[in-house]
Structures are given as structure tokens and as C-alpha cells.
């Protein structure tokens, strides 16, 4: 230690990944709270839940599942591309991931505006006059998909940052922790949706 006291920060890929995984655990528990609420009300009002779920559009839900699963694959492939030092391919794959994420959001927008058109939104009069279980189902539906959409949005921001950094060559074969961690985050978004989809769309 001498006069020049510059604080050294080391680069430890394993540490970065472990930190990201533990962060994903917290995300799982964040949604976990909502899944717990879902489980309790599902057990209390199963008939109402069936009724309400049948009003959701299974086609839109399935389409979104396809978008997310495919985007999960492309982002995973982009890491392989970086590992093989193929930056152009990695760039293309991240771009495709972003487009698929965008399609997911467009789809979600269509779905929500359709529901809003029927005055089905949290706190609306239509909802308040529904049976209690249906009201709670829609409350859960909006909160779960809303929180999920927020995560998709954050994921898109992360992917855009990666896109730029791959283009500029900041992310390359020797240093791609950011892409790896963003990929992990994106898979988590996918993972949550894998549970949300059957619980919200397929209970009728």
C-alpha cells in the first residue's frame, strides 16, 4: 500500500454469476407471494376461477408462450455465438430476441386493451359486480401479468444494452458476463411465464 490508493476491483465471472442466480431467487419469491395468493383463492373459489379463466383468450396466451420460449432459445444461442467468437451472429440473435419480446408486448397490449374495452380493469364497476372469485381472478391476472410485463420491459432494456455492447465489441469472447447474466434474467422471465400461462389461461 503506498500513496496511490486506487481501489482495485477484480473481475470474477463465477462471483458475478452466483450473484445473479441469487438475485433470480429473490425474483422467484417476489412472484412466489402472488402464486401463494393465487393458490389460496383458487382453493377457495375454484368454480369462479374456471368461469373467469374461460373469458381469457387462450390463443393470445399460447402465442405469447411461443414468443417467449423462442426468444429464450435465441438469447441462449447468442451466448454460444459469443463463445465461438461470432459477434455478427450474436448480434442478430439478440436482435431477434428483442423483436420477439416486442411481439410479446404488442400481443399483451392487444389483450389488455380488449379487456379494457369491456370495462374489465382493476377497480372497475363491471368487475365489482362480478362474483367475488372472478373479481379476485382478474385482480390476480392483472397484477401477475402486469408485474411480468414490467420484467419483460426491464429485460428488453438489458438486451438493448447488450446489443450495443456486442456491436461495439465491448462484449466479446473473453468478457461476456453481462450477456450471460442478462440471458439468465431473460430465462427467468420465461420461467415465470411458463407457470403463469397454465394457471391463468388453462384452468377453464
Amino acid at each position: 500500500m503506498s500513496d496511490h490508493a486506487v481501489h482495485s476491483e477484480h473481475y470474477d465471472r463465477e462471483a458475478g454469476k452466483l450473484g445473479m442466480w441469487i438475485f433470480l431467487f429473490t425474483e422467484l419469491f417476489l412472484f412466489g407471494g402472488l402464486f401463494l395468493v393465487y393458490a389460496v383463492f383458487r382453493a377457495t373459489y375454484s368454480a369462479d376461477f374456471h368461469e373467469a379463466a374461460s373469458e381469457l383468450n387462450t390463443f393470445i396466451g399460447t402465442l405469447n408462450t411461443v414468443f417467449l420460449l423462442t426468444s429464450s432459445m435465441t438469447v441462449a444461442m447468442s451466448i454460444t455465438a459469443i463463445q465461438k467468437n461470432n459477434r455478427t451472429l450474436a448480434f442478430m440473435l439478440i436482435l431477434i430476441t428483442l423483436i420477439l419480446a416486442g411481439l410479446f408486448m404488442v400481443d399483451k397490449y392487444i389483450e389488455w386493451s380488449h379487456e379494457f374495452a369491456y370495462k374489465v380493469y382493476p377497480g372497475s364497476e363491471v368487475l365489482k359486480n362480478m362474483p367475488r372469485g372472478e373479481l379476485l381472478f382478474f385482480g390476480l391476472y392483472f397484477m401477475m401479468t402486469g408485474l411480468h410485463a414490467l420484467h419483460v420491459f426491464i429485460g428488453m432494456i438489458l438486451l438493448t444494452i447488450n446489443l450495443v455492447k456486442v456491436k461495439k465489441g465491448i462484449i466479446h469472447r473473453e468478457n461476456y458476463l453481462l450477456l450471460e447474466n442478462s440471458g439468465l434474467y431473460w430465462h427467468l422471465v420465461d420461467l415465470i411465464w411458463i407457470f403463469l400461462f397454465p394457471l391463468l389461461y388453462l384452468v377453464s
Binding site: 383458487r42 429464450s72 441462449a76 440471458g183 420465461d190 420461467l191
Partner: peptide
């Protein structure tokens, strides 16, 4: 069993995502 089956399938999917994609 519908719920149980749906959750079982979802769990298998999640296991694949975790094991391979992640």
C-alpha cells in the same frame, strides 16, 4: 387432476429451461 397435470407439464418445461438454457 387438470391443475396437477398442467403444473406437472410446467415443471418439466421449467426443468428444461433451467438445465439447458440456463
Amino acid at each position: 387432476f387438470t391443475v396437477a397435470l398442467a403444473l406437472l407439464i410446467a415443471s418439466i418445461k421449467v426443468a428444461f429451461v433451467l438445465a439447458v438454457f440456463m
